[in-house]
Design a protein around this nucleic acid. Structure first.
Length: 466
RNA sequence: GGCGACGUCGCCAAGUUGGCAAGGCAAGGGUCUGCAAAACCCUCAUCACGAGUUCGAGUCUCGUCGUCGCCUCCA
């Protein structure tokens, strides 16, 4: 069975065939670091984290690159407003972003290239494009010549003629064609600048990604990812630059996540329609966001509301419920019950791989996980012992882990409060035996306030942190 | 105006080779319990609308309405 993934370039699902067997070269567009990251960034990072984790689970050696755009107009503008050095500002937000990702349980990239650290490669690329006639310099700026690129528009499905009509682009008379885009921009006084054959300046937005890939991944990569708002012009232009220079297919598979919707509209930095990751995490768990992302298709818009996040927190509790230890005094389940559990474990594993292989259908995979949750809980109800439950629980935990959901043990925590809680539970059991209900209930209520949930059964009481 | 995506139960949402509509949350009923919580059991949709293709369509085609994205910086 092969993994299938949707390729924006062909608008079809295709089987994953990597350039090098067993290895995946992957590049994901990271943020421009001029302000705190929001939940939309988190969603995108999470989507590709999930894809990356799954590819690794399927045995691929994944080389995962995510860049930081650390020089650009907005960074400069923001730094000027703050009276701050633009590089310092970028550095600060890079640090913030890395912290955010870590808080969200997103695995660090293999490497994080930065635009400012790729100047040599960028200049080399631009020179190469000029030599081949794909670019031209005007007054210290360098533009890419879109009319020279036969298949320009192939990723976004646009034609040059269509884009001119009704476009909102200011026509720059110095450009040969309105859609020509900047590879190099001359600097104004006081702006960050680098020496170049065309005068002092800085790179255009798109060239950095091409250069970083060329430098760190080679001329061809397997998967190029990012939000679907990057399809045009960013990714289109990356293709144009890279393929014009190398004459080879740049990325085999273009993978794009849908936009996170806040209040029915795209969460966006420029419009201010956003919730920062920091704000989000003060209210919800990282798992809640991950569950919400997993529970819908990565290519579709994601409904982000308090109601949905609340539902996700609840669903996670259910997932956790399957990891509880056996009932006190469990005597062992019947052969039949254990067979059903075993069968479901197998079925869930199969469903998991089949779903995820199908364009990372994580919602389908979750469905199977909940089927296993139900059967585990059933089996526990049928008096299964810890060792009888262990295998299925292990499977559940492992598959959750592949998705990046860290489902932890919900039984005794190993903290030094344990023995005192045990003591209180024991005391309450005595009180209940003497039918001192109000005292028993008081202990239960007070422990609840302290975050300890009691669960009574015929055989005795158990407790867990809630 | 151009290009594209989508519209499935109260909410979120899976479902691409067309063949009896996953899962989660919420809700109702029940088992267990001194009461409760948790868990378990049962109930809960014909897929925006209209037409067409087909033995058969949520799944294909056309049209209508609606939502969203891109065309400018954007995950």
């Amino acid at each position: 069975m092969a993994i299938k993934l949707y390729n924006t370039l062909t608008r079809k699902k295709e089987e994953l065939e990597t350039i090098e067997p067993g290895k995946v070269r992957m590049y994901v567009c990271g943020p421009t670091v001029y302000s705190k990251a929001h939940v939309g960034h988190a969603m995108s990072a999470m989507v590709f984290d999930i894809i990356r984790r799954y590819l690794e689970y399927r045995g691929y050696d994944v080389r995962y690159l995510m860049n930081f755009t650390d020089v650009d107009d907005k960074i400069i503008m923001r730094a000027n407003q703050n009276g701050q050095d633009p590089f310092e500002l970028a550095e600060m937000y890079i640090h913030d972003y890395e912290q955010d990702l870590s808080n969200l349980n997103i695995k660090p990239a293999t490497f994080n290239p930065r635009a400012t650290q790729e100047m040599g490669q960028i200049l080399e690329m631009i020179s190469g494009l000029i030599e081949k006639g794909f670019a031209y310099a005007v007054d210290g700026d360098v533009y890419f010549r879109v009319t020279k690129d036969d298949d320009y528009g192939k990723l976004s499905g646009r034609k040059l003629e269509d884009m001119q009509a009704g476009s909102r682009i200011n026509i720059d008379e110095r450009k040969e064609h309105p859609m020509d885009f900047a590879l190099w921009k001359s600097s104004k006084p006081g702006e960050p600048e680098w020496e170049s054959p065309w005068g002092k300046g800085r790179p255009g937005w798109h060239i950095e990604c091409s250069a970083m890939n060329l430098h760190h991944n080679g001329e061809q990569i397997d998967i190029h990812g990012g939000g679907n708002d990057l399809i045009f012009p960013h990714h289109e232009n990356e293709i144009a630059q890279t393929e014009s220079l190398t004459g080879k297919t740049f990325a085999r598979y273009w993978v794009h996540n849908g936009m996170l919707q806040l209040g029915g509209e795209k969460m966006s930095k420029s419009t201010g329609n956003l919730i920062t990751i920091e704000e989000f995490l003060s209210k919800y768990s990282a798992n809640a966001l991950r569950f919400t992302v997993l529970n819908s298709g990565y290519r579709s818009p994601l409904t982000f509301t308090d109601e949905v996040l609340g539902q996700s927190e609840k669903a996670l509790e259910r997932l956790q419920s399957a990891l509880r230890p056996a009932l006190p005094g469990a005597k062992g389940a019947t052969e039949d019950a254990l067979k059903i559990l075993n069968d479901q474990e197998t079925a869930t594993k199969e469903n998991f791989v089949a779903s995820m292989d199908d364009d990372f259908n994580s919602a389908g995979a979750l469905g199977g996980l909940f089927d296993l949750v139900r059967v585990i809980n059933q089996t526990r109800t049928f008096s299964a012992t810890d060792s009888e439950l262990q295998g299925a629980q292990e499977t559940l935990r492992e598959l959750c882990n592949v998705l990046g959901l860290s489902i932890t043990e919900v039984n005794q925590s190993g903290s030094n409060a344990d023995s005192f809680i045990d003591l209180l539970v024991e005391l309450r059991t005595k009180l209940r035996q003497e039918k001192q209900w109000s005292f028993g209930d008081l202990i239960r209520d007070r422990l609840k306030d302290l975050g300890v949930t009691l669960e009574d059964s015929k055989e005795g009481s158990s407790w867990r942190w809630s």
